[in-house]
Design a protein around this nucleic acid. Structure first.
Lengths: 114, 114
DNA sequence: ACCTATACCTAAGATTTGGAGGTATATAAT
DNA sequence: ATTATATACCTCCAAATCTTAGGTATAGGT
């Protein structure tokens, strides 16, 4: 994950980003996630595949995501969706990250808006 | 670094926190930094010493910080301050982090770009 | 025929962090 | 006097996450 020309920032937010997107969209595949993040941030944030796929696999192994593979236009797509546990965990992890971000902003003395 | 009972969040922000505090205070020692962060976040964010001291040493090795040791009340204090390069780098890294945080919020809030 | 976009994946190495431990002095409580 | 707590520094190890760099394969455009 990176911001403009600066690489390697904030390790630990990727899994929360995935959970947040899946809270909203029900069902997404890996490549779609990379494109959605690019779109949401006007191209400024890039999710690298080397980080994304291991993160997806880990969330699946933790029981937060389930998969369903489909062939679309001759190419395989592996759709991920939140399990019941995944929904609960997503809410918790997003809350944790949000709380952390607020504290980080307090220290950086940025506007406490979120 | 942790938030309430949740540990291990957002690797990469610690060095920026250090630089930001030193931009504001001119001169701080390690223990003071841990206390200041606790104070600013009402005890919710804790900087562990196992993370702090290596981070300080690295910033010093990179030429962003200089040290000056003083004995106060019989105990040694190692004061850190920004070098000239440190001031420049601090500004850049804080700007990078701020930009990243804004993008992260875009994704977490799912605000459509454009 | 070639290149780009789509779509999945893994492996190596660097970096950061938390946890556990160590050393030492000053002060307050028992 | 002894103990506990706060102050103040430090290092090592393991775990986790990430970037970089590869790999495989199909579809469509030039």
């Amino acid at each position: 994950m990176n911001t403009s020309n600066n690489s390697s920032l904030l390790k630990g937010s990727l899994s929360v980003i995935i959970l947040r997107l899946l809270e909203d969209r029900d069902k997404m595949y890996g490549y779609e996630i990379t494109q959605k993040v690019k779109e949401l941030t006007a191209g400024e944030m890039t999710i690298t595949e080397g980080a994304l796929y291991p993160a997806l696999h880990k969330l699946e192994a933790e029981g937060l995501l389930t998969t369903e593979t489909q062939i679309v236009d001759g190419r395989a797509r592996k759709y991920y969706s939140l399990t019941k546990t995944g929904h609960t965990e997503a809410a918790g992890r997003i809350a944790d990250l949000t709380a952390f971000l607020e504290n980080l902003n307090l220290v950086l003395k940025l506007k406490p808006s979120l």
